[in-house]
Computed example of a mutant assay.
Amino acid sequence: MIHLTETAANHVRNYLLNRGKGEGIRVGVKTSGCSGLAYVLEFVDDINEYDQVFEQHGVKVFVDPKSIVYLDGLEMDYVKNGLNEGFEFNNPNKKGECGCGESFTV
């Protein structure tokens, strides 16, 4: 299961409305950085039949079968700290991360 906070869902919904199309967002992982994995976010225009779909606060989140192993239980929030803003990932599967925070290990 992937959990979106209401703040994150509102942010995604606004982007989809401004974009004018899209079914939701896809959350996945890719090999990257010095620790191994990095989060990937993209808009979903065409649904993949193998994706798992989670809907919260009116927003659909799609996850491919390979990524769900690393992301099950993930909570996504959208935070603003001063001039910085972005998605924050609370992943119960994460065992460590690199010093810069770009990648993580499970």
Rank of each mutant, 00 (worst) to 15 (best):
61 V>R: 05
36 G>Q: 00
63 V>P: 10
71 L>F: 01
75 E>I: 05
54 F>E: 08
39 Y>W: 09
52 Q>K: 14
61 V>C: 07
70 Y>F: 14
61 V>P: 05
62 F>C: 11
39 Y>N: 05
69 V>D: 15
74 L>I: 06
87 F>G: 02
34 C>I: 07
76 M>L: 13
75 E>H: 04
37 L>W: 09
48 N>Q: 12
64 D>H: 12
63 V>I: 14
61 V>G: 04
42 E>R: 10
73 G>L: 00
42 E>H: 07
86 G>N: 01
57 H>G: 07
63 V>R: 13
43 F>T: 12
41 L>V: 10
74 L>P: 06
45 D>R: 04
57 H>Q: 10
52 Q>P: 00
32 S>H: 12
57 H>A: 08
32 S>V: 03
75 E>C: 01
32 S>W: 12
85 E>P: 07
45 D>P: 02
50 Y>D: 15
67 S>N: 13
87 F>S: 05
46 D>Y: 02
44 V>H: 02
74 L>Y: 05
42 E>P: 01
60 K>F: 12
70 Y>L: 12
59 V>L: 03
67 S>Q: 14
59 V>Q: 14
35 S>T: 02
67 S>C: 15
46 D>I: 06
70 Y>S: 13
64 D>L: 11
85 E>C: 12
51 D>E: 15
60 K>A: 14
80 K>H: 12
80 K>M: 14
30 K>N: 07
84 N>Y: 13
48 N>C: 10
56 Q>T: 06
44 V>S: 02
33 G>H: 03
73 G>M: 08
87 F>H: 03
59 V>S: 05
69 V>F: 14
44 V>Q: 08
84 N>D: 15
60 K>L: 11
74 L>F: 07
46 D>H: 04
42 E>T: 10
36 G>R: 03
31 T>K: 02
68 I>H: 04
71 L>C: 04
38 A>F: 00
66 K>A: 15
79 V>P: 01
48 N>S: 06
83 L>K: 13
83 L>W: 10
48 N>T: 09
36 G>L: 08
46 D>N: 11
54 F>C: 06
79 V>W: 03
61 V>A: 03
39 Y>K: 08
50 Y>N: 15
34 C>Q: 03
75 E>K: 11
79 V>S: 05
61 V>Q: 08
66 K>E: 15
87 F>A: 07
42 E>M: 02
80 K>T: 14
63 V>Y: 08
34 C>H: 06
75 E>Q: 11
44 V>I: 04
36 G>D: 05
40 V>C: 00
67 S>Y: 14
54 F>R: 06
